[in-house]
Design a protein around this nucleic acid. Structure first.
Lengths: 134, 134
DNA sequence: CTGCATCCTGACCGATACTG
DNA sequence: CAGTATCGGTCAGGATGCAG
């Protein structure tokens, strides 16, 4: 039943998080971090504060909706700080928090890896597709 | 009819968008690596070869379909090697290739980060939600 | 045991229009 | 410039059944 299992799960979660468990909050956080635009947004902000429109320009292909949604999630998770300057045209700046600055390099590492090994992956795909006729 | 025109416009836009992405292959690879189960599969295989059913058991919550789909993608990208042993009950083992072994630590790093900073993120979420009453 | 095909629901995402 | 709300299409992905 749920009672015994729930108590056990709670106790375990308090002592050590394990993303392999479906109910563990870490799983949810991992999925959030794996979101399509998270890496690019974090990598962009890693160079310094940026405005909403600057991010939209830098990250080609992202819609205004997705960008706002991603930034909201990052803000809620304490990875990004949102600063509103109430001038006449409202100005909003996004900046990494200390927590975000700690995560950013890890996300950048994946991006860097992808760039470094693109050729090998491409070659593997070509070989695979040739061996698997449609 | 209006539907045909709308569909055509949509199709044209989609093709143009895909053509644009073709110039930036890194983006596509990054999205692939950011897929929901990629991190957990790579992290699991980082400890050694595993069978299909073993992976399904270890990664709680993944469906058979998604697991196979993820493994096929990894195999196509040359990150995972698939070995079929034609015994009577067919045995299939998945193992990281050298390329996969190079990537795995980076993916594990994100998982590790998530597990390490879960408490801080939780606190940030609570604070955010309390400050933003619906 | 492993993998593939089919069906079907609902979540995601882009486009658009409107507020401040 | 920044953000929200709504609508509609697309497709991811879960469940099931069958094949090797």
């Amino acid at each position: 039943m749920a009672t015994a299992t729930a108590a056990q799960r709670r106790k375990q979660a308090k002592e050590a998080y394990d993303a392999f468990l479906a109910e563990c909050p870490t799983r949810q956080l991992l999925e959030t971090l794996s979101d399509k635009w998270m890496g690019l947004v974090l990598a962009s902000l890693g160079h310094g504060p940026m405005r909403h429109s600057e991010l939209a320009r830098k990250i080609a292909g992202v819609s205004q909706k997705m960008l706002t949604q991603t930034l909201r999630t990052l803000e809620r998770d304490g990875l990004v700080a949102r600063t509103v300057t109430p001038t006449v045209p409202v100005r909003v700046d996004y900046e990494l928090t200390p927590l975000g600055r700690d995560l950013a390099p890890v996300m950048v590492a994946i991006k860097t890896w992808a760039e470094a090994h693109m050729d090998e992956v491409r070659a593997a795909r070509t070989a695979y597709d040739e061996g698997q006729p449609a």
